Simulated assay, not measured.
Amino acid sequence: FVHIFFNPAIWIYFSVDVQMRLYTYLATEFVTYSEIYHLIQPISEIIQTLHTLKYFYWIIDPSHRSGFKPKGLNGNRPTREQIIEMRRYMLLYLKQLVISSSGTQEEELQAILNYLHTVHEDDNLIDVLDMTVNLMSEHPRTMVPAFDRRQGLKTVFKLLASSSEITRLQALKLLGFFLQRSTVKRKTDAMQPHNLFSLLADRLLLHPNSFTMATYNVLFEVKYI
């Protein structure tokens, strides 16, 4: 069952209507159907879903910047708008998988950070980044320690070098929520040894006119300034 439902190599060649029904079902009914849901291993399906997003349901061809060969090129590929919609449903159930996972959720977060660190097209990562920001904001008790132990700041500073202001703003939100919900000791240990506050300033000034009102508003929103 799981191998079929979470296997993109099967579904990518079905009609768009069938694919949409599948991912809508996974995002809405599947996560509440306990008789089936308890049979899956959340970390396995999280990794599989991120693999699906990365290799099959990409928005921008990743072969040039990210350097990996995309799949699902044969047949009638869904349109950009359809892929964006399907990704939205995939991320809804991926988020539920993370939340429902027992333990520290470190492996789950690591899988997400790996995606954000290895995908370089802003269009292919912004929705995953948005979900990560929401997880950090809504579930700080588990996300903050996991983010710290898995060195999530490396991913944040990678994203802050993006040419896209939207990506940089979301990376700032992720950093801000982490710092805002960290203890003083955790915040100090994470930022001071490598002078990351100075690096943050360098990143913000990396692009011409990058310190916009939108950047100021995000910093103010997370009470970081």
Rank of each mutant, 00 (worst) to 15 (best):
F5I: 13
L92N: 12
V222E: 00
V16N: 05
L26P: 02
N114I: 08
E106M: 06
V128S: 02
E108C: 07
E165G: 09
L50F: 03
P140Y: 02
G176F: 04
V119M: 07
L39C: 11
I99H: 08
Q192M: 11
Y224P: 02
T118N: 13
K185Y: 08
K185W: 10
Y89F: 15
E81W: 06
S198T: 12
R77A: 06
V218C: 02
T188K: 09
G152D: 07
H51M: 08
F56R: 04
R203S: 13
T167N: 01
T24P: 01
F211M: 11
D148G: 02
S66Y: 04
A161R: 14
P70K: 05
H120Q: 13
L39Y: 14
Y25H: 14
R203W: 12
M143H: 08
L129T: 05
N195C: 05
S63T: 09
F147A: 05
S100Y: 07
F56Q: 05
T52A: 08
L26G: 02
F211W: 09
G103W: 06
L125W: 06
T215L: 04
F6D: 00
T183N: 01
L53Q: 10
N76E: 14
E121S: 11
L92S: 14
E106T: 05
V119P: 03
H117R: 14
N7Y: 08
H64P: 01
G176Y: 04
E85N: 06
G103H: 05
I10W: 09
H38I: 11
I166A: 14
L116H: 00
T118A: 04
S137T: 08
L22Y: 02
F211I: 15
P8D: 00
I60E: 15
N195D: 12
V144H: 01
Y37P: 00
I4M: 06
H194Q: 14
T167V: 15
Y57W: 08
Q180A: 12
M136I: 06
H64A: 13
M131R: 00
Q151R: 13
V31H: 12
E107R: 08
R87G: 10
Y25E: 02
S44A: 15
Q82D: 13
R149Q: 13
E108S: 07
Q96N: 14
E81Q: 11
I43E: 11
H120I: 06
V128C: 10
K154G: 13
K54F: 12
S34I: 10
E81S: 09
R186K: 06
Y33L: 13
L160C: 02
N76I: 14
L125R: 14
I83L: 07
A171Y: 09
H51Y: 15
L73M: 12
I4H: 10
T24V: 07
A146L: 04
L219H: 08
P62R: 00
S15M: 05
Y57R: 01
V18T: 11
S66G: 01
I43K: 10
